[in-house]
Amino acid sequence: MESRQKLTRGHAVLGRALTAVHLGQARTRSRLTAELGVTRATTGAVTAELAALGLISIDTRSGDPAATPGRPSHRLAIDPDGPVVLAVQVHVDGFRVAIVGLGGEVVATTAGRRYVPADPSDVLGAAVDTGNDLLRASGRRCAGAGLAVPSAVAEPDGTALNPLHVAWRAGAPVRAVFTEQIARAGLNAPCFVGNDVNLGALAEHRHGAGRGATHLLVIATGHRGVGGAFVVDGKLYTGSSGLSMEVGHLTVNPEGRPCHCGNRGCLDVEADPPALLEAAGRVPDPDVPLLRQAIDLLRDEHATDPLVRAAAHTVVDRLATGLAGLVNVLNPDRVVLGGLHRHLLDLDADRLTALVADRSLWGRGRGVPLMGSTLAHGSLVGAAELAWQPVLDDPLGVLG
C-alpha cells in the first residue's frame, strides 16, 4: 500500500511539472522548483524523467537571472522531437487538421474543402486520412486525437446535440465515429470531442489572450453562426450535461432574420459572416470560405465603401447588444472575441467597447476589457488540449 501511494504521488508530481512547462509557467528548473514546492533534487529527478519520456529538453546553460550564483538554473523547453497529438476541426465548408505539440505549438496544419453530408464518417474519414499524412511526414509519435465540432456536445456520450450548420442529425455519435476512423487509419490514440468555441476558449485561456483571467467569456464566429464559452478558474463551464453557453440564440433583433432554432433575430444570424455580407449587399462566393470573404471585405473595402462601413456598424451594434446581456449575467473579468468579431474589434475598438459599456451594468461600472483572440487556430489547439490532458495528468502512466 505504501509503495503504491508513493507511486501515485510520483506520477502526480510529474504531471504537475509537465503542466507547468506546457503552460509556460516554468521555463527554468529553479522556477519549476518554486512552482512545485519541492527540493532541487526532486526537481532534477522529475525533469530527468520527463526528458527520458521525450517530453521536455533540458539546457544546462543558465536561463534564470535570479538563479543562485554558482548554481546556474537549467532551461526547460518542450522537446522539439517529442510526441504530438492530432487535432481535427469540422466546419460548414469542410475541415482543418493539425498536429500539435505540447505548449500549444501547431507543428503542421492543412485544410480540406468539402461538403459535410449527413453521415459524419464522410468528413471525419477524410480529415483523419489527411491528418495521418501530416503525422507520417513529421515522423513523430501520436499521443492522442481531439475533435472540434460546430455543435454542442452532450456528455458523457459524445454526441452532437444541435449541429445546425452541417447536415448531421441531432444526436450524431461523433466521438464514436471519430474513434472508428482513427482506428481504421491504424492510429492507436485515445479520442476526445468538444464544441469548437468551447475548445477555442480553453486554448485562449491556456496559451492566448485569456491567460490569467479568472472568469473568461469568449465569443466567436466561424463560417456561419456565433458561439460562446465561459472559463471559470481555468475550467470550461459546460452546464449539467455539456450544453451551456449557446449564446448564438440570444435575441438581439426581434424583427430580424429567421434563425435555424425557430426564433428570429438571434445573434447566430445577426452577427456572423453571412449577415455582414448580406448587409453589405454582397452575394457570397460558393468557392471561397464565408469567414474569409467577410474578413477580406472588411480589410479591402471598409475604409472606402460607405455601404461596407454601415454593414460593419450594424453587425457591431447587434454584437454589442448580445455582449452587454452576457456581461450583465456572467460578470466576466475579460472578454475575448474571435473570428469575424476579432476583426470588427480591430477596426473600431472604441465604438464596440463604448456600446457594450453603455448597455451593461457591469460594463459601465468596471470597464470589462474586450480583447481579440491571439491564436490562429484556437479550436484546433483546444482540441489538442483535450488529447493532451491525460498525458498532463499522468505522463509516465500514459507514455511510460
Rank of each mutant, 00 (worst) to 15 (best):
P273D: 07
G256T: 05
A303Y: 00
R292P: 02
L267F: 01
A271E: 08
T251W: 00
G325L: 14
V269Y: 07
D285E: 08
A279K: 09
D268R: 02
P274Q: 06
V308W: 09
L290V: 12
L290T: 14
D305S: 13
L298A: 06
T304W: 01
R282T: 14
A303N: 04
A310P: 04
D268P: 01
R282A: 05
V252C: 07
G265D: 11
V288L: 12
R282L: 11
A280L: 05
R264Q: 12
A294E: 09
V252S: 10
L326M: 14
L297F: 06
V269N: 07
A294D: 03
D285T: 07
P289F: 00
L277V: 08
V327M: 08
D285K: 01
T304E: 10
P254Q: 02
C261Y: 09
V252D: 11
V269R: 00
H313C: 11
T314R: 09
D300G: 10
L307N: 13
P273M: 05
A294W: 09
P306K: 08
V269A: 03
A324L: 05
G325D: 10
D285S: 10
A320R: 00
N253F: 01
R264K: 04
L291A: 15
Q293P: 12
I295R: 12
D285N: 12
G256R: 00
L297T: 07
R292N: 13
P286W: 07
N253L: 11
L323M: 09
P306A: 10
R299N: 13
G262H: 01
T314L: 11
D296M: 03
L291N: 15
L298V: 13
I295W: 00
T304V: 15
V269G: 06
R309E: 15
T321R: 13
V308R: 04
L291P: 08
V283C: 01
V288N: 05
C259I: 12
G322D: 07
R309I: 04
G325E: 14
A271L: 08
H313F: 15
A271S: 11
A311E: 08
G256D: 03
H302R: 09
L277D: 06
L290C: 02
L323Q: 03
I295M: 10
N253M: 07
L276N: 06
C259W: 01
V329L: 15
A271Y: 07
L290K: 04
